[in-house]
Design a protein around this nucleic acid. Structure first.
Length: 513
DNA sequence: CAATAGGATTGAT
DNA sequence: ATCAATCCTATTG
């Protein structure tokens, strides 16, 4: 109905590996083997740990990456400054450059976080920053992220030629690209910190050798990642994490401290909760605009069209998804959102500030208890927000989704024009995404037995709706969705559970964790 | 009645 | 050729 996802950016951004499973490879096999073969491609271990967001690694990753890798395509200070105003001020008042005592905005060196880092000794890498004059630390964070990991929902296209050794292949070689990346970053960070400490002058702006060294390290790691090489055993990472954490605790907390202060200011400004999960769609838009402005990113006219999600859903979007929607600024927004999430998560007690800034404040028709369950409201939302703006939407006038799910309107959706339409994400990937965030989607879909890949769709309508939204198939329903799932039986992506229960499915994966 | 199961068709890639 | 979305019919609990 409401989702005009044809807005999605052109499909240049498709998943790096499309899950063409080459079923024939293992389809002829007996079930066990075919599953194991699939395991090569299907790594549930890539899922974020259920409720263990591992804030530390993320933190380190997010905060430091920017200091290391810089590759910002757009920019030029002039441009940055131009982009101060132009974005359409929608319903909300957007922040003027926040008052950061130590940061004169136009200065490339002045991004809040960045200056914060400078104060902690990471700033020395600022040398590279200067030359690039990037206003956005997060952007680099994002780019480094992209560089480093072989993009997540890593399906098929395995590196393992041999179809069986389940664990051997899946575990040792391609396990946890994310963590591995983080790991290497942490290593870099420790290195950096040590160097900082030694020099005793954290703020010293240029220490070329350090920079050089780090760069090399990074490149090295990138290379490894590219080839799916895992530099260190996961265990060692976990084991060493504590130490690293120990070393970085102060830095992390200081950085978070700053992030929190920043968030505070913006929250006050936008009158939103610090917890992204509490944001209404309208607040999401406010935050996005604010962040775009903050980082001098080009304004997005159809932001409301691009992001129908509420805060909870927003936090679930992958970086790729962000980039797909907003190629220019998606990375930054995503990275920034990560920071917000961390900053909030780090707050003792998670003070729910949504009490202070109810969602309804910014958007009267949203009530305080807005949550992901209220699919009706969500839809209303999306509709309310999307419809009025659909005019501003340039291309494909099409998909004004004939809501009532015109059953006969077969293929009427001319708007889904190829690449544009939904993302290239596959249903099974999408389900994994949902499953990865029980706190958000737990009411719609949840793991029954994660180790076995068994999950249950608690709210078929909602899941179907989410899927339809993601794929820009407004007419998607559970019937169709389940049909697709059933196709997975043949492909070895999913299987029926031993005791078939309604709405319970099982991924075919060999791992038990 | 909703879910399950699958065959068949179709459009897109 | 393959895949996913759709449509459809039959069956099941």
């Amino acid at each position: 109905m409401e989702y005009e996802k044809m807005l999605y950016m052109p499909s240049g951004s498709e998943m790096p590996h499309s899950p063409q499973l080459k079923p024939h490879q293992f389809q002829a096999q007996t079930p066990p083997d075919q599953y194991s073969a699939f395991a090569d491609n299907f790594d549930l271990s890539l899922l974020p740990q259920e409720s263990a967001p591992a804030p530390i690694p993320t933190t380190v990753f997010q905060y430091n990456a920017p200091q290391i890798k810089v590759e910002c395509a757009w920019e030029s200070q002039n441009q940055q400054q131009q982009q101060q105003q132009p974005y359409p001020r929608s319903t909300h008042r957007l922040i003027p450059p926040p008052a950061y005592p130590h940061s004169a905005y136009p200065s490339p060196q002045s991004s809040p976080l960045q200056s914060e880092f400078a104060a902690y000794g990471f700033g020395r890498l600022g040398g590279s920053y200067d030359s690039l004059s990037s206003p956005s630390p997060s952007l680099e964070a994002a780019s480094i992220k992209q560089e480093l990991h072989i993009l997540p929902p890593s399906p098929p296209e395995s590196n393992c030629e041999t179809p069986s050794p389940r664990s051997a292949c899946g575990e040792s070689i391609k396990a946890e690209p994310f963590d591995a990346d983080i790991e290497s970053l942490i290593d870099l960070n420790s290195l950096l910190q040590q160097q900082s400490l030694q020099s005793g002058q954290p703020n010293l702006p240029d220490t070329k050798p350090d920079h050089q060294l780090l760069r090399e390290c990074l490149e090295d790691t990138s290379f490894q990642k590219r080839h799916n090489l895992k530099p260190l055993a996961l265990e060692s990472f976990i084991g060493g994490l504590a130490e690293v954490r120990g070393d970085f605790e102060p830095v992390i907390s200081l950085a978070l401290e700053h992030a929190k202060r920043e968030a505070d200011a913006i929250c006050a400004e936008l009158q939103i909760s610090q917890d992204p999960n509490g944001w209404s769609p309208a607040q999401v838009h406010a935050w996005l605009r604010s962040t775009l402005a903050q980082f001098r990113l080009p304004p997005v006219a159809d932001l409301e069209l691009q992001f129908c999600e509420d805060g909870a859903a927003l936090t679930l979007l992958s970086e790729e998804e962000f980039v797909r929607r907003l190629p220019e600024s998606g990375s930054t927004l995503h990275a920034q959102l990560e920071i917000w999430k961390m900053a909030y998560a780090d707050q003792p007690g998670h003070q729910q500030q949504s009490d202070l800034w109810p969602a309804s404040y910014a958007m009267p028709n949203l009530d305080l208890d807005y949550n992901e369950d209220s699919e009706d409201e969500e839809d209303m939302d999306a509709e309310a927000v999307v419809t009025p703006l659909s005019s501003s939407f340039t291309s494909t006038p099409t998909a004004t989704p004939t809501s009532g799910a015109a059953p006969t309107a077969k293929r009427s959706n001319g708007g889904r024009t190829g690449g544009g339409g939904g993302s290239h994400i596959h249903l099974w990937q999408f389900l994994k995404e949902l499953l990865a965030s029980p706190q958000v989607n737990g009411t719609a879909i949840r793991w029954i037995d994660r180790s076995k890949g068994i999950f249950k769709i608690e709210d078929s309508v909602r899941v179907a709706k989410l899927w339809g939204r993601r794929k820009n198939r407004p007419a998607m329903n559970y019937d169709k969705l389940s049909r697709s799932i059933r196709q997975y039986y043949k492909k070895g992506i999913m299987k029926k559970t031993e005791r078939s229960q309604r709405l319970v499915y099982q991924f075919c994966h060999p791992y038990s964790q």
